[in-house]
């Protein structure tokens, strides 16, 4: 069995009296993308801070690439890449200068800054100062900085936040490419489509606890319900009907509608991760 790139056992963290992370456990295998989903204040960022060596855990244990995050953070940090939600770049430095500076901190002599910038579509702005960049370009810079040391583990906090759909799709492709070359990815996002599309597994975190952890498909099977939404002509207007598919009770009605001249459209409805999260926690992801 492949050793987990990230292994977390009973991890805890408290800010004074407030317990932000309450003994969570999970693993991320090399090449796996784990979506870490939860509303603001759920404990996602605190967990990432502990795993990246920024905060010492209050309890439990965690290893990244076999290094204890509490004691071996320097060696571990040499092999991870972190993309923060906050755009913490040196805005008076150029894109290339930013990457070369951070590469130097990893001891990389001749970093391929141009190559990394090319991957995120910023090659033509390599020598421009970051302060001239749009929000989306800064976000791409954040991604490129996380890639500069060719990490074995990536921590990505809202990596496509603020990007247009085309650029976001390109970034998702890049993240998938990293996972394909064996990089373990811990991805936090509010974008359910992104989590669903990218994640091999998702963990729902709420109130400092993981309330569900499985593949998106399994979660949908376990917690979601399938239905068919039909739109019918009704006199001069249109009406909708939702027919559940899981209990077989709507089979006759579906057969009837299929041949009805009043039928306008018929769509299958799947449970979304957000619906499942609300079902599990009673609160939405955005809050």
């Amino acid at each position: 069995m492949t050793e987990a790139a990230i292994s977390v056992q009973g991890l805890r963290y408290s800010y004074g009296d407030l317990e932000a992370v309450k003994g969570i456990s999970f693993d991320v295998a090399p090449g796996e993308i784990l979506g870490f989903l939860g509303p603001n204040g759920a404990g996602k960022s605190t967990t990432i801070k502990m795993l990246t060596g920024q905060l010492p855990p209050s309890g439990g244990s965690a290893t990244v690439l076999g290094y204890d995050v509490g004691t071996g953070s320097s060696q571990m940090q040499a092999r991870i890449g972190v993309c923060f939600e906050e755009k913490n770049l040196y805005v008076t430095m150029s894109a290339k200068e930013n990457l070369e500076f951070f590469a130097s901190l990893y001891g990389i002599k001749n970093p391929d800054a141009d190559g990394v910038l090319r991957r995120v579509g910023l090659a033509d702005r390599a020598t421009d100062r970051v302060k001239t960049f749009s929000k989306g370009m800064r976000q791409r810079m954040m991604i490129s900085r996380a890639f500069i040391n060719t990490p074995d583990v990536l921590f990505l906090d809202e990596p496509t936040d603020g990007l247009d759909p085309t650029t976001a799709a390109a970034i998702r492709t890049t993240i998938q490419e990293e996972a394909d070359r064996g990089v373990a990815v811990l991805l936090t996002t509010h974008d359910m489509f992104e989590a669903d599309q990218l994640s091999d597994r998702v963990a729902f975190i709420n109130g400092g606890e993981i309330v569900a952890l499985d593949t998106p498909e399994n979660l949908k099977l376990a917690y979601g319900s399938r239905s068919v939404k039909v739109r019918l002509r009704d006199g001069d207007g249109v009406r909708e009907e939702n027919l559940p598919l899981d209990d077989g009770s709507a089979s006759a009605r579906l057969a009837e509608l299929a041949t009805s001249p009043a039928l306008l459209t018929m769509h299958t409805e799947e449970a979304t991760l957000e619906h499942i999260f609300i079902q599990l926690t009673g609160r939405g992801l955005a809050g």
């Binding site: 972190v82 755009k87 913490n88 040196y90 951070f102 901190l105 900085r145």
Partner: peptide, 14 residues
């Protein structure tokens, strides 16, 4: 303020 200190401290820099 800019958060660059945090960015430095997730590299091997102490």
């Amino acid at each position: 303020i800019r958060g660059t200190l945090t960015a430095i401290l997730v590299t091997p820099a102490r």
